[in-house]
Design a protein around this nucleic acid. Structure first.
Length: 423
RNA sequence: AGAGGAGUGGCAGAGUGGUCGAUUGCGGCGGUCUUGAAAACCGUUGUACCGAGAGGUACCGGGGGUUCGAAUCCCUCCUCCUCUGCCA
C-alpha cells in the first residue's frame, strides 16, 4: 500500500496517478487518508503523554513499596485509576483511527509510473513492439481444443469427472510437453542468474495481504477454510512473502528467484466465448520470476525481466508482441506492467502469456520488506515479478501454430527435453 | 493425533511481578596499539510510531486478561523439541 508520507508530500502526483487509473473519488479519498492520519497522530500524542505519566507513577509506587511506605503508595494509586480510564479511551480511539486508515489504504491502488498510458480497458494498452512471423496455416487448421482431442493429449472431460470444469488432465505426449516446458523454463532462468525455489502452494492470510491479493481479490482464490489457508493464484505470493518482515543488506541486491508451481484461480464471473480450451483454467502451471531490487535499479530490473521473457518466446519460435498496460487495465498493486502476448494462429488472436510488473514499494510497504543502505537507515525495497512463463496458452500456441499434415512439430529447443519432435 | 518440555535482541544465553529495552558472551561497527594483520584494550551495536529538538510511547512467538506496575502470573492460538501413535 501507499505510504501516508508519500500521499502528503506528493499529493498532486498521487492524485494524478490515481486518476489515470480511473480510481473514483481519488481526491476525497486522499484527503480522508490525511485526515485519519492527522487524527491518529494527535491521539497518539495525548495517549503517549498520559502513558508516560502513568509509567512514572508506577515507578514511584515501586520505590515506595520497596521502602515500606505502603500508605503513601496507596494514595498515589487512586490517581492512576483516573489516568487509566483516559488512556483506555484514547487507546480505543487510536486503534479506530489506525484501523480506519489501514482499511482505507487497502482500497487505494498503486500510483502508475509516468510512462503508463491513460485508458480505460485492454483496448487502450500500448503495443510497444511485435516480433516474429505470423504463420500461414493450411485450410483445415484446427483450434487447440480440437487438436488435443485429435491427438488425445489433453482431456477436459476427464478433468470434469475428477474435479470440475477448468481442471484438465494432460496425457501422454501432452503431459510430457508440460514437463518439458517447466524444465526448459527453469533451466533458462537458472542461466539468467535466478535461484530456484520450491515454495508452498497454500499460503496463510498474512501472505495474501503481503502481496496484495487480500483484501482486493478475496473471491478469486480457493480457500482451505478449516485451516484458513489459500491456494496460490501465482507463485508470486509465496516467493515474494519469503521476504516479509525482512531487512536486507543493500549488498544483497538484486535478489532473483524463480519457482515453478501450479496456480489456482476461481475466475469467478470471467467465463465467456473467448475462454475455451486452455485459454482459461482453474488450475494451471506457471514458472514465475521474482526480483527484489534497490529502488534506483528497479526499472532496469523490469527491462531485464521483460527482455528475458521475450528471449523465451523467441526460443520457442512464437510470434509475440509486448504491451504497456494502460492505467485502467493494470493490476491493483503494479506501477508499470508489460504484458507479453503470443499469436495463436488458429484462433487468430493474441493470448496473454506473461505479465511483468514493477510494484515499486507498494508491496514492500505491506510486507515490511526493507533494506539498509550506506547511511544505515532502513528503506523500503522494490519488488517485481513476471511469468516466465504460464504454460496453457503457450501450449495452445505451440499446438495451433505448428500443426502440419504430419502432426504437430515441436520447437527445436524443447526436443532435448521432450524426447520426441512431433505429436 | 496424545503426553511432556520450550519459545527473550544477528546468534548464544540470564532474567519468574517493580527505575528491564532488558546482565553477560559471541558476532558486527568505530577507535587505540602495529609497517600491516592478529591478539589485547576502549567505545558502540534492535525495530516502529510521535516530536523541530530534548525526549516520549510500544514491542521479550501472536492475541486477550489480571495488576498502580508484566519478559515474569492467568487464558488462548501458533511454532519448535522429546516420547508414543499414524503416514507419503
Amino acid at each position: 500500500m501507499l505510504l501516508v508520507n508519500t500521499i502528503r508530500d506528493n499529493f498532486e502526483i498521487v492524485l494524478e496517478g490515481l486518476q489515470k487509473r480511473n480510481f473514483p473519488n481519488a481526491e476525497a479519498v486522499l484527503h480522508q487518508v490525511l485526515e485519519f492520519d492527522k487524527n491518529r497522530k494527535e491521539t497518539q500524542v495525548k495517549r503517549d503523554s498520559l502513558q508516560a505519566e502513568s509509567n512514572n507513577i508506577s515507578k514511584q509506587i515501586g520505590m515506595l513499596m520497596k521502602d515500606g511506605k505502603k500508605e503513601e503508595a496507596e494514595k498515589i494509586k487512586t490517581r492512576t485509576t483516573e489516568i487509566k480510564e483516559q488512556i483506555k479511551t484514547l487507546e480505543e480511539e487510536y486503534n479506530t483511527y489506525e484501523e480506519d486508515l489501514r482499511q482505507l489504504l487497502y482500497t487505494i491502488p498503486n500510483v502508475p509510473h509516468y510512462a503508463v498510458p491513460k485508458g480505460k480497458s485492454a483496448e487502450d494498452n500500448e503495443v510497444i513492439l511485435q516480433h516474429g512471423e505470423i504463420p500461414v496455416l493450411q485450410e483445415d487448421k484446427l483450434p487447440h481444443w480440437e487438436l488435443i482431442k485429435k491427438y488425445d493429449i489433453i482431456d477436459f472431460d476427464l478433468g470434469v469427472k475428477i474435479t470440475g470444469a477448468g481442471f484438465p488432465v494432460y496425457k501422454g505426449r501432452g503431459a510430457r510437453l508440460q514437463r518439458a516446458l517447466i524444465n526448459f523454463f527453469l533451466d533458462e532462468a537458472l542461466h539468467a542468474g535466478y535461484t530456484e525455489v520450491q515454495p508452498p502452494i497454500l499460503v496463510n492470510e498474512d501472505s495474501g495481504y503481503g502481496t496484495g491479493q487480500l483484501p482486493d481479490k478475496e473471491g478469486q482464490m480457493y480457500e482451505a477454510t478449516i485451516d484458513k489457508l489459500y491456494l496460490i493464484p501465482t507463485a508470486e505470493v509465496p516467493i515474494t512473502n519469503m521476504y516479509r518482515d525482512v531487512i536486507l543488506n543493500e549488498l544483497e541486491f538484486p535478489i532473483k528467484n524463480v519457482g515453478y508451481t501450479p496456480c489456482f484461480r476461481r475466475e469467478a464471473g470471467s467465463w465467456g466465448a473467448h475462454v475455451r480450451g486452455l485459454n482459461r483454467l482453474h488450475q494451471f502451471d506457471k514458472v514465475e520470476i521474482v526480483q527484489i531490487a534497490h529502488p534506483e535499479k528497479s526499472y532496469e530490473a523490469l527491462e531485464e525481466m521483460s527482455n528475458y521473457v521475450q528471449s523465451l518466446l523467441q526460443k520457442l519460435e512464437l510470434p509475440y508482441r509486448v504491451l504497456r498496460l494502460c492505467g485502467g487495465d493494470m493490476g491493483f498493486t503494479s506501477a508499470l506492467t508489460y504484458d507479453m502476448e503470443v499469436f495463436s494462429a488458429a484462433q487468430e488472436r493474441w493470448l496473454e502469456v506473461s505479465s511483468v510488473s514493477n510494484f515499486e514499494s507498494y508491496q514492500a510497504n505491506r510486507l515490511k520488506l526493507r533494506f539498509r543502505g550506506e547511511d544505515k537507515k532502513t528503506q523500503l525495497a522494490h519488488t517485481l515479478n513476471g511469468s516466465a512463463l504460464a504454460l496453457p496458452r503457450i501450449v495452445a500456441a505451440i499446438l495451433e501454430n505448428n500443426q502440419t499434415e504430419e502432426g504437430i512439430k515441436m520447437p527445436k529447443v524443447l526436443i532435448p527435453y521432450l524426447g520426441f519432435d512431433i505429436i
